[in-house]
Amino acid sequence: MAHVIVVTSGKGGVGKTTTSAAVAAGLAMKGKKTVVIDFDVGLRNLDLVMGCERRVVFDFINVINGDANLNQALIRDKRLDQLYVFPTSQTRDKDALKRNGVEKVLDELKQSFDYIVCDSPAGIEHGALTALYFADSAIVVTNPEVSSVRDSDRIIGILAAKSRRAERGEAPVNVHLLLTRYSAERVAKGEMLTVEDVQEILSIPLLGIIPESESVLRASNTGTPVIFDDQSPAGRAYSDAVARFLGETREMRFVKPERRSLFRTLFGRA
C-alpha cells in the first residue's frame, strides 16, 4: 500500500519545498516509485524547484475538478524514471482543494505509487490542513530558531488532533523532525538553538540535520533538487535523511557538539 508523507512546518520559508523535492528524488533514487504533489495552490513553486516548469499543462486542481486525468497532469522527471511531479495551479486559491476531491486523487495515485509526498503550504489554514489530513507520515521541517520551533510544535499538535488517522482513532501519524538551515558555527556563537534545544521542546524523533548551504539556493535556481548534488553537505544530509526514513541507520553529520545552549542563555538571564 502506498505511503503518504506530508512535508509541513507551520512557518513559511523554512525549506518545505526544497525538502519535498529532495526527499521525493531521494526515494526515487532508492528505487521507490514516487510522486511529489504541490499543495500550495496559487503559489506554485515545486515545479520550479523540480525543473519541470516548462512542461506543465494540467495541474492538481484540474484533476480534482475532473477537467483532466492523472496521466495528463503527472510530469515524469527527466533524471529519474521512478519520479513524478504533480504541479498545482497558480491561478486558483486554496479553496479549490476540496477534501473529497483530494481523497479521490490520492486513492488513484495509491494504485501505482509507493510514496506520495505532499508539499504543504505554510500556515495552519485550509491548504495546510488538507495537505496533512491524509498523511501516514509527516516530516516537520524546522529551523533552529524559536518562532519556527513554536510553529512546528503547533503543527505537531494539529497532526495529532486533526489528521484522518486521529479522527478515525487509527495509529497516529508517524512524525519526524528535520532540522534545516542549521549552522554549526552560529550555534557555537549562541545565535541559533542547538539540536538538543529543539528536540527537547518538540520531543519527536530526529530524521536529519540539513546544514545551511549555498548549494540549496543554487539547486532551487537551476531546478535540480539539492539531493542530486552529492558534493554538497546539504545534498549528502538529505541522502542520509531519506535512508533513515527507509529504516537505515546513518550517523548524524554536520553537528558539532556544542555545550552552550541559547535556550539556557535566554532563560538564564534575568
Binding site: 495552519i124 513554536r150 510553529d151 510544535d153 505537531i156 499538535g157 494539529i158 495529532a160 520531543s203
Partner: peptide, 8 residues
Amino acid sequence: TEPVRSGT
C-alpha cells in the same frame, strides 16, 4: 500523558 503542544 502526552506533551501539550502550542495552541492547545
